[in-house]
Simulated assay, not measured.
Amino acid sequence: MDWVLLAVIAIGLSLAMSIAWSTQRVTGLSGWIDTIWSLAVGVGGAAAALVAVGNFERRVVVLLIIGTWALRLGSHIGLRTRGSVEDPRYKKLMEEWGGSAASRLFLFLQIQAVAAFVLVLAVYLAASNNAPFPRLIDALSLIVAVVALAGEAISDRQLARFRKSPEAKTGICETGLWRYSRHPNYFFEWLFWCCWPLFALSVSTWSWLSLLAPLLMYWLLVNVSGIPPLEEHMLRSRGLKFRALQARVNAFFPGPRKSDSSYQGKQP
């Protein structure tokens, strides 16, 4: 483990989230926070891949994968944020925090920097793997990464197309991948981080730490900053329509649609 490199990356992530805090305070748009966070993780992961001492071919693949992820997600969120209104999740937090919103947001973003470090650590461990490349598990890792990147891009494109339609004002997206999961973009984001433990798998003492990335991402998306605040907002804005969707479509893992007749039977 290159502790000096990891310390430099940790400091860089903290500085990046400080910049994200300043950007939000100036613009009033919290979408820039997630844009900067995505790019910061990408830069940290790229630095780890370049400096790690693992197999060269695997390091190149790791660099390409994390770079593709960061550029796609960062540009997607950035384009969506430009000229938009405040993110409802952050808006609710700021309202709850009241007069201490500025200081509490800064602390909140430093916690995000810690989460980013856990993800970059998984990339570093993958790039540090000295096992011959490619192995069968490397092929599986690459398949997982490609499927995840494609799935998230398709989900985001389908949602963006829906938001431009007349139905978006009062309806809910149930087209394409959104027919089988209420949050397919979150699912594929989690799946992406599952590729790193596979790339990192070796006899190294530290390789098991790469499992923290998908575990952390699942916890954040399903229980903390992903699904809960977004669905709370959807319930406020769409009411019974969204409750009906909850009855027939899985929240996270894509699966067969369920009949909502049982829910409809409970309607007054």
Rank of each mutant, 00 (worst) to 15 (best):
L73K: 09
A160K: 12
M1F: 12
Y124D: 07
L119Y: 00
A7P: 04
V222E: 10
Y186C: 01
A102W: 07
R179M: 00
S165Y: 04
W69R: 06
W178R: 10
I66Y: 05
S181C: 00
S165P: 01
L13E: 01
L142G: 10
T68V: 13
F252H: 13
I143L: 08
V53N: 15
V224G: 02
L216W: 11
M1P: 07
R82T: 09
T175D: 15
R135K: 12
V61P: 11
L212F: 13
N250I: 02
L212H: 00
N250Q: 12
A122D: 02
S14W: 12
A49K: 05
R135I: 05
A251K: 15
W208Y: 06
W21M: 08
M234I: 01
V51R: 14
W208M: 06
S155E: 03
L177A: 03
L220R: 05
G12V: 13
I65Q: 11
L109P: 03
W193G: 05
G67N: 10
F187N: 12
G176P: 11
R257Y: 02
A153T: 13
L235H: 14
L136A: 13
L198H: 10
A116L: 11
V123G: 02
R104L: 14
C173N: 13
E231S: 05
A150R: 15
T23N: 01
R163N: 05
R238Y: 04
C195I: 04
A102R: 15
V147D: 09
S237H: 08
A70H: 05
Y218N: 06
V60C: 14
R82K: 15
S103R: 15
V203W: 06
S155L: 00
A145P: 10
D87E: 07
I36M: 10
A251V: 08
T205H: 09
S128K: 00
I65K: 07
H233W: 15
S225N: 04
